[in-house]
Amino acid sequence: MTYLFIILYAVTLIYFALSERVKKFIWLLAIQGSILFGIVFFSLNKIEVFDFVFILIETILVKSIIVPWFLNKVRRHNHLKREHEPSIPVFYSIIVVVISLLLSFILSSQLNDNQIHTKYFTVAFASILFGVYFIIIHKNIFSHVVGYLIIENGIFLLSLAVGSVMPMMVNLAILLDVLMGVLVLGIFINQVGDTFKSVEIDQLSNLKD
């Protein structure tokens, strides 16, 4: 069952590359959050109450409800509808995402470390690679935050790959990171939108030598 969700996660990455509407990004983030919940739910063998509550809060509540809801608010505040043409055509982005998926699957099959659950490593690595790529190709600071969240989702999966040995504190740290990151970044997006009347990165180029 875990594989099902992992495959679905890979498919969401492809749709990230394909879509050009800001609203769709937010939807995809929400879907990724639910997929993460599914992965954790079906992969934890002996689930404790505390763990369960934590995972519920982290994935369902934060990743698939609060964060998308907040991003949607930011989107409406700044009247964002359609992402302008990314600097690299979508056609190549899809090829990049496929290559990164293939790469990370091959890499995970090469890893024969007993301490790491390579099935999570596959999409985790692809997600991080793609998140960085996503930030690079988009010229809009809202999309940069979306890219950052894709990276964070990848990191969440990576921490699953490391296994149950991770201290709770680290999980809490990720949760804080996402929540604070999104809230603060979102507030700053609104500031930028109000000050510059646009959230294109071209606006932010006064500081240079």
Binding site: V145, I151, D177, G181, F188, T195, N206, L207
Partner: peptide, 22 residues
């Protein structure tokens, strides 16, 4: 405006950097 630009860049790039460090 400059302060906003610098703050945004610092916040965003540092966050991504810190995520990489994680």
């Amino acid at each position: 405006k400059e302060a906003l630009e610098a703050a945004w860049k610092y916040l965003f790039v540092s966050s991504v950097g810190v995520a990489l460090a994680f």
